[in-house]
Design a protein around this nucleic acid. Structure first.
Lengths: 151, 151
DNA sequence: GAGTGCTGGTTCAAATCTGAACTACTGCCT
DNA sequence: AGGCAGTAGTTCAGATTTGAACCAGCACTC
């Protein structure tokens, strides 16, 4: 906190662009998912992560880390998804404390139905607007920050 | 919704990296601001935008657009900042319906006190981890998306 | 200059997020 | 065994966000 250099023109522009864009995109995605399937973005992410996981199941904490949401928020969201029949809870066989979130058949079908529309938005506003080079540069840049933030 | 191409390896990696990073960074920033000054990130953004604006004042709608937050959320946040004495409301002289949010002297001082710590975080995790080239590439990429999302 | 449609803000209810307790179980260490 | 620090999830209260409904004031038309 002693003497941090201020952001120059270019840096400030970069930061503002990143910030606005991420929020705007989040808004748009939320809107699309809500309209198409009554899902929130975190909910969609949970389904997507589970679908990719072995046996379509994951531990709560691991899932929370992946989706980048607090443990309590995940507890809440899994509750919602359970009510909707898209996910089920199982106690982890190897660790009595642990809970496994499992994607149900209905969950799989829901995701299959919703994914195309979601991907279309991500593509239309972000992916397809970048060149391959920009895409790769962004990825490496983001990864550095991500890694730093995950300690 | 007809036949959108799925995301290939590289594209998916880019999207995931962007998504996680933006959320992780948001979390970290929120934490820092809360600890340093009891401010939320949107609140900080409001102060920062006002500080940059001519006469340190802005119309509500314009401010909401800038910070990328709903009008009702801004109403709420300006209320909070007003309670804290950092911002004041004035009715707009040219348009009787309009409201101008004005940064107070206390607001200016608060921002001056908090900004260095905030910028330090943005720098430490994002800006300083990129080369100048990456920075510029990211900015152009983000701008394209931003523009598309603002219609 | 009344009527009509728009725009600017606020209010409201509902949903969600977070961090701080709290409970239960695990893994060591002696 | 017995104790103890640490981990996994949940619960809870409080703060914030959002969209929809609402009330004014503006601007344009006939």
């Amino acid at each position: 906190m002693t003497d941090t250099a201020w952001l120059d023109e270019t840096e400030m522009a970069a930061w503002r662009a990143f910030l606005s864009t991420s929020h705007l995109l989040e808004r748009r995605i939320e809107e699309q998912l809500k309209a198409a399937a009554g899902l929130t973005h975190p909910q969609y992410e949970v389904l997507a992560r589970l679908a990719d996981a072995p046996d379509r199941q994951m531990r709560m904490t691991e899932l929370a880390r992946g989706v980048v949401v607090s443990k309590s928020a995940l507890t809440y969201q899994i509750g919602q998804l359970e009510k909707a029949g898209l996910v089920e809870r199982t106690t982890c066989p190897s660790d009595e404390r642990g809970v496994l979130a499992v994607l149900t058949e209905a969950g799989v079908r829901c995701l299959e139905r919703v994914a195309p529309g979601h991907v279309a938005v991500v593509r239309a506003y972000l992916i397809d607007r970048m060149t391959r080079g920009e895409l790769e540069t962004m990825t490496t840049a983001m990864r550095k920050t991500e890694q730093a933030l995950r300690q």
